[in-house]
Amino acid sequence: MKITIPLPKLMSTLLIAATFSFHACMTVSYVGDRYQPTQQVDVYYAEKDVKAQYRVIGHLAEKVSGLKGEERAKQRIVAKCREVGADGVIILGFEYGGTKETEQYQKAQAIKYTE
């Protein structure tokens, strides 16, 4: 028994699969120090909101894309901070650039408490 799939349906299925694969491969850019992974990462939106003494251990950037892209980018940044052992993250906002001037990146700083 031979199963045939119409070409337009096959092409749209492959396009959807490729799109999901591309988004799954996107990773947070990180440069900095690494420590034992942490379970909890405090999220801040301004340096003045961090009441504890800390030091910046790294810088992060994540491309924002798709529906709810800002929230997804933030969640990926927080996950990366847990992976590198940060105690907190300061979300710095957005920057535009990349290969197109309209590409948006969420920037952040990974921090480690010193107290």
Rank of each mutant, 00 (worst) to 15 (best):
T4W: 12
I5D: 09
P6K: 10
L7G: 05
K9Q: 14
L10F: 06
M11F: 10
S12W: 12
S12C: 10
S12G: 05
T13F: 15
L14H: 04
L15P: 04
I16H: 09
A17G: 08
A17H: 11
T19M: 15
F22V: 15
H23V: 13
A24N: 00
C25M: 12
Y30Q: 07
V31T: 07
V31E: 01
G32E: 00
D33E: 14
Y35V: 03
T38M: 09
T38G: 05
T38S: 04
D42S: 12
Y44P: 00
Y44K: 03
A52V: 15
Q53H: 14
Q53I: 00
R55M: 02
V56G: 07
I57C: 01
G58H: 01
H59Q: 12
H59I: 10
L60M: 09
V64N: 01
G66F: 06
G66E: 02
E71D: 13
K74V: 09
K74F: 03
K74Y: 08
R76N: 14
R76E: 09
V78E: 04
A79G: 06
A79P: 09
C81N: 03
C81E: 00
E83N: 04
V84P: 14
A86Q: 03
A86Y: 03
D87P: 15
G88D: 00
V89Y: 03
I90Q: 02
L92I: 04
T99V: 13
E101P: 10
T102P: 00
T102S: 01
E103I: 08
Y105F: 11
A108G: 00
A110L: 06
I111R: 07
K112W: 14
E115A: 11
